[in-house]
Design a protein around this nucleic acid. Structure first.
Lengths: 105, 105
DNA sequence: TTGCCATAGTCATGTCATCGGTATATAACG
DNA sequence: CGTTATATACCGATGACATGACTATGGCAA
């Protein structure tokens, strides 16, 4: 799983959001590093829905604009938990190896 | 940057290794999750060399077998440090959002 | 009232890293 | 002498992501 996907799941972890709102939340979560384009976002949302990691919880029409709210499913939640653990482990290993190299060399 | 690439850099962080040895170290670092195939490895090594993140530090012939040792360059080292920080940050954010969602729902 | 901007979502195309398989060569093992 | 392990390399397919153009509505300003 890549960063954009991971951040989309993270954005939906606390509460359901509609597609466009995810873009803003992902920008927040990544400290501005990741600015999703609409195309990237909706392709990812479709894919994640097909995989059962997220789900459409309600659809609204606000001011004539179609809004579709997505939420994390239980499988999506455990998947995100696993991924977070993996990232933490990788980061820890990398920092330790860097320390070893820094001392030795 | 994706997981295999990140793990390759991590494997080279402590000390120079030749290509084939990287496969084993990556398997170790990832607790067996990631088993690099030869194709993936050498394509990645070439790419990382071209990007200046790693470098060939020496070439040997051991028992008639060609061995090429790769090491992290200073740019490679700072890049890996940044990536590790990014992973940690993402993991932390994800776990916090999951907690928020778990409580609220 | 016309035109532009922000919001919201869709679609088509392209790129790039990774994967799987295959090929090459040599040394060690039996 | 055939098989396995080491070591490097090439190639086609896949799949995630990026890019850019497009539709549509409401609000605001010229």
């Amino acid at each position: 799983m890549q960063e954009p996907t991971f951040l989309i799941l993270t954005a939906l972890a606390a509460e359901p959001l509609h597609g466009y709102a995810v873009i803003g939340k992902v920008a927040d979560l990544s400290d501005g590093r990741v600015t999703l384009r609409a195309g990237t976002l909706y392709t990812a949302l479709d894919r994640l829905t097909a995989e059962g990691l997220i789900d459409v919880v309600r659809e609204e029409v606000v001011d004539g604009r179609h809004r579709r709210y997505y939420a994390l499913t239980p499988p999506g939640s455990s998947r995100l938990t696993e991924e977070a653990a993996r990232l933490r482990s990788n980061a820890t290993h990398a920092l330790r190896q860097l320390r070893l190299g820094g001392l030795g060399a």
